[in-house]
């Protein structure tokens, strides 16, 4: 049995889709839903051994695991110098990297180069995975990564765009991660969706 509402709504929504610019949606919507859906994650808490930082709540951490993978962590309080330090440390561990820090409303113009990976630009499965360093009742949104450098081919570079945005309870840090084959375009800051 046909559902008239379903068909009418489809027509209205398809008109909405057809009327849109092909490139990007309204900024307010992406920010709202991306944040609320949990792409934002406040990184807090556990001190990580081996971090060249003072204090108990490091803004970042990069450490190599016994299995050769590298754990990377970034927090909301990260500074531009920290992004540079992450890049240096990744390179020290043998991972060619470009790390950029972006604040709310900023984005890097894309593409940054020839992306390697899934059709949407995501790195191949297994290159980067989410990890937990622990959780507690008040903050179970730790967002840490584990990178497997053995999956990088010669000539490829890890590009990590760190975004901090929001404030108060909704503040967060997100990361766009790409693998680029060959040269990496410097980050040209353009208005962003977060």
């Amino acid at each position: 049995m046909a559902d008239p509402f379903k068909e009418r709504l489809l027509v209205a929504l398809k008109e909405e889709v057809a009327s849109r610019e092909p490139a990007r949606p309204a900024r307010s919507h992406r920010r709202k839903y991306a944040l609320a859906a949990g792409f934002a994650a406040v990184v807090a808490g556990a001190a990580i051994v081996g971090v060249p930082m003072l204090g108990e709540d490091p803004a970042y951490a990069v450490e190599r695991e016994p299995d050769g993978t590298i754990k990377v962590k970034a927090g909301f309080d990260i500074e531009p110098a920290d992004a540079a330090a992450i890049q240096r440390k990744l390179e020290f561990f043998g991972v060619p990297a470009v790390v950029d820090l972006l604040r709310g409303g900023e984005d890097c113009a894309g593409p940054r180069g020839a992306y390697v990976g899934d059709e949407d630009g995501s790195p191949p499965d297994g290159f980067i995975t989410q990890t937990d360093s622990g959780f507690d009742d008040d903050d179970w949104s730790h967002w840490n990564y584990r990178i497997d450098p053995s999956r990088l081919e010669p000539g490829q570079t890890l590009v990590w765009e760190i975004h901090t945005h929001g404030e108060g309870d909704s503040k967060g840090v997100t990361g766009d991660v790409w693998i680029v084959e060959g040269p990496v375009r410097p980050c040209e800051i353009v208005p962003g969706d977060f």
Binding site: L13, E16, R20, P25, R30, Y33, A34, A37
Partner: peptide, 8 residues
């Protein structure tokens, strides 16, 4: 429609 491009 607004957020489809953010899916990873």
């Amino acid at each position: 429609v607004d957020t489809a491009h953010t899916y990873r």
